[in-house]
Structures are given as structure tokens and as C-alpha cells.
């Protein structure tokens, strides 16, 4: 019987059909998905902080409204994804606890600080651009609720990337000081953006099984290459350079050659040693604890009205 179920699961995955919440699935598949989707959800929620940092100081009402909408989208993306983990039997409170206790991770990119307003533009262009590269293939991931959440997210990410690029174009048409600010920001974010695709394939422990289960559709290195290819013409149009002396068009391959990020730095940030790791988690913990009375009051209000209706 177990073999039967496993065979049906394998066949569903191989035939590009989707696994749905109440289907039988191997324990490892369920665990891998919960880990990956929760990490993704946490990234969206923590990702509100670096840009939220600039909402009160946005240079115009237009930029402020855009930034608010974008940060609100990140919250929404986190909720779509938490909702997907719950279809796998995960508990929302448990996931939040694991995040604020540091037992589950989020993307290391959010442990870098946003020093200038140009960072808002560069995050939209490069960080959300890298996220789109990662996420578009996930629209075809084998688990139905995850794939559907990703379709929704990808549609909204397009706004994020375009607003960022437009912001940078505006700054590049400004003063020399503004252009320098954009280039400085690009210099700081380029390598962390390349790290967003994860360690090189040779060191990526989860890739092989995840590809077999069709959770993951492309390897880290394939996606990184794709991102570099896409970003180069955009940088040229903008008038900025990337801080990589090895970055060069390779006519034989029909792709750009590029250097490797500092993987020691990557692992250091993953392990908690980034500039903002502590600040991000402390902020999330405070928001959760400060919101406790609201959750309790709303629950008490609902309980009171349920009793009234029951009595009526």
C-alpha cells in the first residue's frame, strides 16, 4: 500500500501535475517544503524592515506612497506563503516563534543596512530582480499551493522592480552627487544580490533532492548566470557599473563571465554575523510582543460577541 502511494506521488510529480494538500507525500518532501516556504515567508516579513527604514524620509509624497505600497506587498507575500505552509500542517505561531528565536532562517540579503535613499531603488532593481529570477521558476514548483502563491507574488514583484529602476533613472538624471550615490549603492548591493541564489552548486546540499521532487526547477549557478545576463544591459542603460573586474561578455558561451562573491562573508552572515542580523530579529520580536494586546483584545471581543449571539 505504501509503495502504491509513493508510486502515485512519483508519477504525479514526473508528469508535471501538482501535489495538493491532502495528497499522500513523503515525509522528506513535506519537511523540505515547510522549511523552504517558511524561510521564504520569513524573508518577506523581515524584508519589510530595510525599506521601511526610508518610508518616513521618502523625498516626495509620490515616492512615499509607492514605498508604502511596496512594503505592504511584502507583508502580503509573507502571508500568502505562511498560508501555503499551513496547508502542510505547519502552525503559524510556531513559525513566528522559530523566526524570533533564530531557529529558522530568512534570506541573508536583509541583514545588510540601507544607508541612503538610493538603496531603495537598488533593492527594487537588483534584490527584487534576483528574487524574480528565483521565483519565476517556482511558479511551476510541484506543490500546488506554493506554485499558486508564487504566481501571485511574481505579478506583484514586477511593480517592485520597475519602481526601483525608475527611481534610479530619476536620480541618474539629477546631480553628480546623486549619480555617485546610485553607484555607491550598486557597489554595496551587487555581491549580496549574487549571493541570494545560494552557495555554488557543488556546495548546495539540498539542490539534488529538491530538483528530483521538482520543488526546485533550476540550480543556484544557473539562476545566478541568468541574473547576471539580465542585469548587464540594464546597468548600461542606467549608466552604472558593477564592482566585478572579471565581468565580461564571453562570445563563445553567449553569456557573461563573472567573478564569485566572497563566500566566507556569505556564511558569516548566514550564521548571524551580518551587520543587521540582531537588529532585524529584535525588531520582529518587539513588533510581535507589542502586538500581543491587540491579538488578545480582538480575540476577547470576538468571544464576547459569539456568546451574545449564542444567547440571543
Amino acid at each position: 500500500m505504501a509503495d502504491d502511494l509513493e508510486l502515485r506521488f512519483e508519477r504525479t510529480v514526473q508528469s508535471e501535475s501538482r501535489i495538493e494538500p491532502r495528497d499522500w507525500m513523503p515525509d522528506g518532501y513535506r519537511k523540505t517544503l515547510i522549511r523552504q516556504i517558511a524561510q521564504h515567508a520569513h524573508s518577506e516579513i523581515i524584508g519589510m524592515q530595510p525599506e521601511g527604514n526610508w518610508i518616513s524620509r521618502a523625498p516626495s509624497l509620490r515616492r512615499k506612497a509607492i514605498l508604502l505600497a511596496k512594503v505592504q506587498d511584502e507583508a502580503g507575500h509573507g502571508l500568502y506563503l505562511y498560508s501555503a505552509t499551513e496547508t502542510l500542517g505547519a502552525d503559524r505561531e510556531d513559525l513566528t516563534t522559530k523566526l524570533i528565536e533564530g531557529r529558522q532562517k530568512y534570506s541573508s540579503i536583509f541583514n545588510y543596512p540601507t544607508l541612503t535613499f538610493a538603496d531603495v531603488g537598488v533593492i527594487g532593481w537588483l534584490v527584487d530582480g534576483a528574487a524574480i529570477c528565483n521565483q519565476v521558476p517556482l511558479c511551476r514548483t510541484s506543490y500546488g499551493p506554493y506554485a499558486r502563491a508564487m504566481i501571485r507574488i511574481c505579478k506583484e514583484e514586477s511593480f517592485h522592480q520597475r519602481q526601483g529602476y525608475e527611481l534610479l533613472m530619476t536620480m541618474m538624471r539629477g546631480t553628480q552627487q546623486q549619480r555617485d550615490m546610485v553607484q555607491d549603492s550598486v557597489n554595496r548591493w551587487w555581491w549580496p544580490a549574487l549571493m541570494m541564489f545560494g552557495p555554488p552548486d557543488a556546495e548546495s546540499t539540498n539542490t539534488e533532492q529538491s530538483m528530483a521532487w521538482r520543488i526546485k526547477r533550476d540550480t543556484n549557478d544557473e539562476l545566478r548566470q541568468k541574473f547576471v545576463n539580465m542585469s548587464m544591459p540594464q546597468a548600461e542603460a542606467l549608466g552604472v557599473t558593477f564592482p566585478d573586474p572579471e565581468l565580461e561578455w564571453n562570445a563563445d558561451r553567449g553569456e557573461y563571465d563573472f567573478g564569485q562573491p566572497d563566500w566566507d562573508e556569505f556564511w558569516q552572515v548566514v550564521k548571524g554575523g551580518g551587520v543587521c542580523n540582531e537588529q532585524r530579529i529584535a525588531h520582529r520580536r518587539k513588533a510581535h510582543e507589542d502586538g500581543a494586546w491587540v491579538r488578545e483584545a480582538a480575540a476577547a471581543h470576538a468571544a464576547k460577541h459569539a456568546r451574545k449571539e449564542g444567547a440571543a
Binding site: 502571508l79 498560508s83 501555503a84 499551513e86 496547508t87 503559524r92 499551493p145 480582538a298 471581543h301 459569539a306
Partner: peptide
């Protein structure tokens, strides 16, 4: 389209 947590139907 998905799910969410809320204290009551209106919320």
C-alpha cells in the same frame, strides 16, 4: 485564493 487568521468573520 488562500487562507488567513482572524478573530471573527468581520475581521
Amino acid at each position: 485564493v488562500g487562507s488567513l487568521h482572524a478573530p471573527d468573520a468581520e475581521m
